[in-house]
Design a protein around this nucleic acid. Structure first.
Length: 359
DNA sequence: AATACGGGGAT
DNA sequence: ATCCCAGTATT
């Protein structure tokens, strides 16, 4: 029971047999023949996978590699292009940091990624998890990889009663104990695969778990009790108005958001501030310019820490844009760095805006 | 230690 | 509705 060597051996054996084939992975067999995966691919995938599901990442990963096959290509790309390509994936600071890191690797390391945890950790957007993951997976370093999946697996394996996130350091100690000298990258991916496919948050498939004989939570017959988490706060509601202006040329008025903060550097239609109170009856009085503003419903969008309700208005009127505003052909909206909430708003005002042949 | 930061899939 | 996801940066 709880023999580290046995856990490692059984987990790696399971991984050899059941590992998932993902675009940024090389198979364990190929890795065994010293065919390491491309560090650029590993880094790109790991950043995209931060708080994001595999299914959501797959098409973005393919798009980025098609647009920018190497880290030097990405470093040379216009930031607006990177933001537009990232649009819809969320957590847009990741895209800004991705570009900064690519520039650092291209300029300071001649396009070669640092091959240690410490070296990787210095790049913007790379924290403890990603530094360890890239070091282990791409460079075969014995680095302790701990993400949400690993936290769940470890908390069950050792029946850790202390709540997250305070118990994180203690869990990291356990991960460090387990991480093997040989095949640390496969071990890390095995732990994450186990968490994603068997040791799931609800109804874990203990019956087919390769390490259940070592699991204290399984022995207690209540694995779902773990990981214990601190209570979370409730979500406030904010409200505002959004304005979709289309001129006679079939162009829509857009503007760029501030570089930092919520949806930083992304594109939006003009909106009022998003007040802290619920539905303040936002009206056309707050429009960016005087016109016949026609109400066309509301859009609700849930962010991590608040829920947003936007009243949408539209007009066919025209006006010159300000410094941070421009008129964009509706047919070209697909190439813009529009976050999902803005696509919802525009679709509300112009139902066919994102179709192949917009009206 | 707490908070800000997207979006979507599973239940 | 609720949870959670191959987390990081800032305060």
């Amino acid at each position: 029971m709880n023999d580290p060597q046995a856990i490692i051996r059984q987990l790696l054996a399971w991984y050899d047999k059941h590992h998932r084939d993902l675009p940024w992975r090389t198979s364990p067999a190929a890795a065994a023949r010293s065919r390491r995966p491309d560090p650029y691919h590993v880094w790109l995938s790991e950043v995209m996978l931060q708080q994001t599901t595999v299914q959501a990442v797959k098409p973005y990963f393919a798009k980025f590699l098609a647009l920018w096959p190497t880290v030097k290509d990405l470093a040379a790309a216009p930031t607006e292009d990177v933001m537009a390509a990232w649009a819809g994936l969320g957590y847009y600071a990741r895209a800004r940091n991705l570009k900064k890191s690519a520039e650092a690797v291209a300029e300071e390391h001649d396009g070669v990624f640092p091959d240690t945890e410490d070296g990787l950790r210095k790049l913007p957007g790379i924290g403890d998890y990603t530094a360890a993951a890239v070091a282990a997976i791409a460079f075969d370093r014995q680095a302790p990889v701990m993400d949400g999946n690993v936290e769940r697996v470890v908390s069950r394996l050792y029946a850790i009663d202390a709540p997250l996130p305070a118990s994180k350091p203690a869990m990291k100690v356990r991960v460090r104990e387990l991480t093997p000298e040989k095949r640390p990258g496969d071990f890390a991916q095995a732990m994450m695969d186990l968490g994603a496919t068997i040791c799931t948050p609800r109804r874990p498939a203990c019956a087919i778990c390769p390490i259940r004989e070592h699991c204290l939570a399984f022995a207690e017959h209540d694995p779902e009790r773990f990981p214990v988490k601190a209570a979370k706060k409730d979500k406030p509601i904010r409200a505002g108005a959004a304005f979709v202006a289309v001129n006679p040329e079939g162009e829509i008025l857009l503007r760029r958001r501030a570089e930092s903060g919520l949806l930083g550097g992304m594109t939006e239609v003009p909106t009022t501030g998003w007040t802290a109170r619920e539905n303040g009856g936002e009206t056309a009085d707050h429009a960016p310019f005087p016109a016949l503003w026609e109400p066309c419903g509301t859009v609700t969008h849930v962010f991590t820490h608040f829920e947003l309700r936007l009243s949408v208005f539209r007009t066919k009127a025209d006006r010159r844009g300000g410094l941070d505003e421009w008129w964009e052909p509706v047919a070209n909206l697909g190439a813009q760095a529009l976050p999902t909430v803005m696509k919802k708003v525009i679709s509300q005002a112009i139902p066919l805006a994102f179709e192949k042949h917009p009206t």
